[in-house]
Design a protein around this nucleic acid. Structure first.
Lengths: 336, 336
DNA sequence: CCACCTCAAGTTATCGTTTTCTCATACCTT
DNA sequence: AAGGTATGAGAAAACGATAACTTGAGGTGG
């Protein structure tokens, strides 16, 4: 069907080696032969077969992306950042949605490995030991985008989650709040759980506010648990709440209203992630924004360096986040 | 590095052919030898090299996705739909962002072809002749997702855009409007321009409302032009407007307010696509929703059929759309 | 008892490249 | 003039699989 290097060789009356040489500029070929080959290529409409090439050179110029769900907020931007840089360095990307399920993750990593990807960029909140092990076993560069493993074994690009929640809580303190509650992520989530909670603690301690464990209730990033969590916090008369996700913040606000209080008049609320929920919800929700595109772009750039075996200054890049102030902390009456 | 079929063969003391046979169940192998091979595979940690396999069998089980921008609304859902079905049929997908630029599209199609993808799913509002030609030339199955070419040369999955805008305008008519303006897509866009305009005309003519060309202003799906377009329409005293995109609808609403009128009190507005803008904006915008996930899923299913050379009942699938009624046409005070 | 068939398993060509050798020619050098 | 060294280009061996052919041992029938 498609012309192969052989056809070109025959057409140009040279050996396939010579064709390969002009294709890759891998050795000197006289201008005259080169021209003959070029003509033959044009005439035959020859397109090199990347499969054969990759098989031989043991590089596919392809990298795999493990994503929880491309259709959920945050990830499309990250992926776009990745792909932009990838294309800049002529890499292609395999997109794999896993819903953060262990079996899907394991399965995709295996497939990517069989397809000989040059590297894998992993995204997801929690990175299980089994997955970690398998990522190691593949024996190719791995970059974690927008996440990190507990031991920092893998290169990664992320924001400083502790600092981010520190900033959020500090802002609440700056507004004069003393009884600040938190609806955290699961305690077994090293980032959304542990880190964000520790940022909360730090902000308190810096402001010499005593930490009370009754003011931190564990959530799972989802609405239902957060609603109940907020009810508990209300019993403790909090005057502000920091939730580790926008969805939980929204649920908390609902709980507050349902209990007869109001946001931002009685209680201030801050969420996390700047999802559309945070500006769609009324009142709009003050939140922390992660630089999604940049996380992707920087991750991929890091990957290219790893692939080129370039020296790397920092295997763990921390990108700046941003506090976006909205109605839920009393700012910005959205005007019609 | 990685064990190859040879290593397995040596370990199991059989020929590589036998290993291949148990791998693919392509011929009978005695249980005893089979077991030996299986053991050897486990022992060596052998993973078949998909590249080598693909080179030989001339199939990669990979398909390419041409997308304008994965980080813009609509596409993430479509892609998720595609990937779900792809993974169900054990296909992997290459994601390519083109920003709908001709050179990027051409370039990606070439690369995908070199990487020997089994098929390409194309997304994008406009499909240029050059691109069309190149898609043909690759000689593999092509499916257009959420779009279509003028001549219906390629299999595709889409909604009925004419019907969709017909429905939108008909709804406006049902609300008692007579002077209905339209901010269309570019006239060289066969779908967002031509089709949606023709649906508008049809709804009018069905209601015996005379079409006036002054009531249709061409936009480019973006805010700026739409804002100006709306100002023009206001000069013509329209009492309702149908815009071919949510962004244009939002801009139109801004123009209306800035001119001292109000939505929905004075003028009703309908957008297109049900992007987050349509529910984030105040007033929330009545709009047409395209079933993004389904468009993706059905496109990929169609692709699998094409690849399997199954008989296909319909090369051109039309999926149902939906009118989502919100504040901009006077319905649904969003309650706190 | 031998020709023939069956069936498991081995040999080998092939997919389309890259790359290492080789080799022939031409050009220096002394 | 003889020997050494560039230099351009061909031959052939990979890369790691699949699959078409062989092979050879054992079973069957006339």
């Amino acid at each position: 069907m498609n012309a192969t290097i052989k056809d070109v060789a025959r057409e140009a009356k040279v050996s396939i080696a010579t064709v390969s040489r002009v294709l890759n500029n891998s050795a000197v070929v006289t201008d005259e032969t080169k021209q003959r080959v070029l003509d033959a290529i044009k005439k035959t409409g020859y397109k090199p077969n990347a499969l054969a090439r990759s098989l031989k050179i043991q590089k596919t110029h392809t990298i795999g992306l493990i994503v929880p769900d491309i259709s959920s907020p945050f990830y499309p931007e990250v992926v776009r950042g990745i792909e932009d840089i990838a294309s800049m360095y002529s890499y292609n990307i395999f997109l794999c949605n896993t819903d953060q399920k262990e079996d899907k993750e394991m399965n995709y990593i295996e497939i990517l490995s069989e397809k000989q990807v040059d590297g894998i960029i992993y995204m997801g909140d929690i990175i299980r030991d089994s997955v970690k092990q398998q990522l190691h076993d593949v024996g190719i560069p791995i970059v974690l985008a927008g996440t990190e493993d507990a031991e920092f074994e893998f290169p990664n690009v992320n924001i400083d989650n502790k600092k981010a929640s520190y900033d959020a809580v500090k802002y609440l303190i700056s507004l004069g709040h003393k009884k600040i509650g938190m609806i955290s992520g699961p305690s077994d989530d090293p980032i959304g759980g542990v880190q964000r909670t520790s940022g909360y603690k730090e902000a308190l301690s810096e402001a010499k506010i005593r930490f009370k464990s009754s003011l931190v209730v564990e959530g799972n990033f989802k609405a239902r648990q957060a609603y109940l969590a907020m009810l508990k916090l209300l019993e403790n008369n909090v005057d502000a709440v920091f939730a580790a996700s926008d969805e939980m913040a929204a649920a908390a606000i609902n709980a507050i209203f349902d209990s007869g209080f109001s946001v931002p008049e009685d209680i201030h609320v801050i969420g996390f992630d700047n999802t559309y929920l945070s500006y769609m919800f009324r009142p709009t929700i003050t939140t922390i924004q992660r630089p999604a595109y940049d996380i992707g772009a920087v991750s991929m750039r890091l990957m290219t360096k790893l692939l080129a075996k370039e020296p790397i200054d920092d295997m763990h890049v921390v990108l700046p986040h941003q506090l976006i102030v909205r109605e839920s902390t009393g700012y910005g009456e959205e005007k019609k």
